[in-house]
């Protein structure tokens, strides 16, 4: 995979992460974590939200981002890694500008989600965990996303799209540049 893509593209949040100096990022992360700490009785608990904050600032959670989180939360870096890799939705590698989260669990599966998977593969050359060469899309194959009545369904960044067919999915994706 082309490592420069996701990093340059930043997250769906649109922050041009690399434009920011490293010191700047860690200062802003520090401020965010300071706010988060007020929400919990123990600092350790800020870890999950802090990782999201870092992901937003750094674009994805590489070693530098994880080390910054470790430093600012006091959670040992090996444990931070243990936590971040347990969950499947943190961006532990650079991702495209838009992330497609396609549900393929049973309800969507029986309504044809695997056909959509093949469609994405054919049209964009995308398979699970990968990013298009132009950095426009990344694909994450999901377990149930709670839209089984309108299956098949997907999330693109933070937007839900339901009742997908091969006919309508292309038009939906065309809206994401």
């Amino acid at each position: 995979m082309d490592n420069t893509i996701g990093a340059a593209g930043g997250a769906a949040t649109g922050v041009a992460a690399t434009d920011m100096a490293a010191g700047d990022k860690s200062r802003r992360l520090k401020d965010k974590i300071k706010v988060l700490k007020k929400l919990y009785p123990h600092t350790r608990s800020v870890l999950l939200p802090a990782l999201y904050a870092a992901q937003e600032l750094y674009g994805w959670l590489g070693e530098d981002a994880l080390e910054a989180v470790s430093r600012l939360t006091g959670v040992p870096s090996a444990e931070v890694k243990g936590v971040v890799t347990f969950y499947s939705l943190y961006k532990t590698r650079p991702m495209g500008r838009n992330v497609i989260y396609l549900c393929t669990n049973v309800a969507c599966f029986i309504m044809g989600a695997n056909t959509l998977e093949e469609f994405l593969e054919k049209t964009y050359g995308l398979s699970h965990g990968e990013t298009t060469a132009d950095g426009r899309f990344s694909l994450v194959i999901m377990e149930c996303i709670g839209a089984c009545d309108k299956a098949p369904a997907m999330l693109v960044n933070d937007d839900c799209h339901f009742n997908l067919t091969i006919d309508n999915i292309k038009a939906i994706l065309d809206n994401y540049k």
């Binding site: 599966f109 029986i110 309504m111 044809g112 989600a113 056909t115 959509l116 054919k122 067919t165 091969i166």
Partner: peptide
């Protein structure tokens, strides 16, 4: 047979 209401033909 393809699952769901789509067929690979359309692809």
């Amino acid at each position: 047979h393809r699952w769901g209401h789509l067929s690979m033909g359309e692809l």
